[in-house]
Structures are given as structure tokens and as C-alpha cells.
Amino acid sequence: MSKKQVVIETAEEKMKTNSKIMVACDLSAHSKEAIRCGAALAMDLNTELLIVNVINQRDVTAMEHAIEKIKAEISNFPVTIGEYLEGLKKQRKDDIDKLLAELDCPKPPHAIRIAVGVPFKRLIDVAKDEGPRFVVIGTKGRSNLADVILGATAEKMFRHCPFPLVSVRLQE
């Protein structure tokens, strides 16, 4: 049995025993709709909602380089990459709390998780750790045809995630 098959079987086992609904949230209008859908499903299924936001590693790397350049010019520059990430995580958690407060539906018990990495990979890692019943993701358009229909992260999630996915679009 290959390593990939073992991981998929483990994910399937977790899905059978765990009834969380995981929502991928990038703080866009699309993710607000995904949270609304995930919350409604969690209420209907009497389960917990897990909202996951990923800070893109590309942005963290760019900030690391910017801080290094600034520190080369200003010897006592007060910001470190750790402080930057902590502030960003707090801001994102606050923003997700605001999105939840704006929902006009009952709110299930929920948890918020902020991760750092390549968005689709970290979302899959979190899903494997948490073993949700399924993952809810908002879709949006970007550049190429697949991205225009789904969004880059959603498209990659559909190709690689070992859990069922629910795609949510904004209503016109």
C-alpha cells in the first residue's frame, strides 16, 4: 500500500468519527457566503464549525525581506516577523469574528484557526488534522479558465483534498 493511500484512509477514518464542518475563509465576500453556508449546515447537522484562514507564505516571505531591508537602514527597527505574524493573526481572527457577527442566521459552536503556508496545501493539512465531515469553500474568478470558474485555491482543493468539498458561489 502506498503512503498516499494510507493518508487517504486515515482521512476517511477521521471523517467517519468527526462531524465538524470546515470552512475555508480568505475574508472575501465569497468566504462570507461560505461561512453562512457552513454555519447553516453545522446547525442542521448539530455539529461544530471550524473556520480556517491561511496567511500566504508568499506574503510572509516578502515581509521578511522587507523587514531585513528596513533593519539594514534603521538599526533599532521595532518589528520582527514573529510580531508581524502575531498581529496579522489577531487581525484576521477579529475580521472572522466580524463576519460571523454579520451573519443573519443562528451560529453553531465554532473555532477559528489561522495557519501559515501555501493556501491549498495548508487547508488540506488542517483538514487531515481535523477530519471534518466535509469542507466548504467559496469560489471566485482570477486568471486562467479553471481559475475564472472556481478560483485558484478552490480548483486545487477540488483536485487534491481527500474530503468531500462543498462549493459556494455568491448569489447574483
Score class of each variant (00 low, 15 high):
2 S>D: 15
3 K>P: 09
3 K>C: 10
7 V>K: 02
13 E>V: 06
14 K>I: 02
16 K>M: 11
18 N>E: 12
22 M>P: 00
26 D>K: 06
27 L>W: 12
30 H>T: 06
38 G>K: 01
39 A>C: 04
39 A>P: 04
44 D>V: 02
48 E>T: 11
48 E>G: 03
50 L>W: 01
52 V>E: 01
52 V>A: 00
53 N>K: 00
53 N>C: 03
55 I>R: 02
55 I>Q: 06
55 I>D: 08
56 N>G: 01
61 T>H: 14
63 M>V: 14
68 E>R: 13
70 I>N: 13
82 G>V: 02
84 Y>G: 04
87 G>A: 06
88 L>Q: 14
90 K>D: 12
92 R>E: 15
95 D>K: 13
95 D>Q: 15
95 D>M: 14
99 L>Y: 01
112 I>K: 02
114 I>M: 09
116 V>F: 01
116 V>E: 06
118 V>D: 07
119 P>V: 14
121 K>E: 04
122 R>L: 07
123 L>G: 01
125 D>E: 12
126 V>F: 04
127 A>Q: 00
136 V>D: 01
141 G>E: 10
142 R>T: 13
145 L>E: 10
147 D>Q: 13
148 V>F: 10
149 I>N: 08
150 L>G: 02
150 L>M: 15
150 L>H: 03
150 L>T: 07
152 A>D: 15
154 A>P: 02
156 K>N: 11
158 F>C: 14
159 R>D: 03
163 F>E: 00
165 L>T: 06
169 R>C: 07
169 R>M: 05
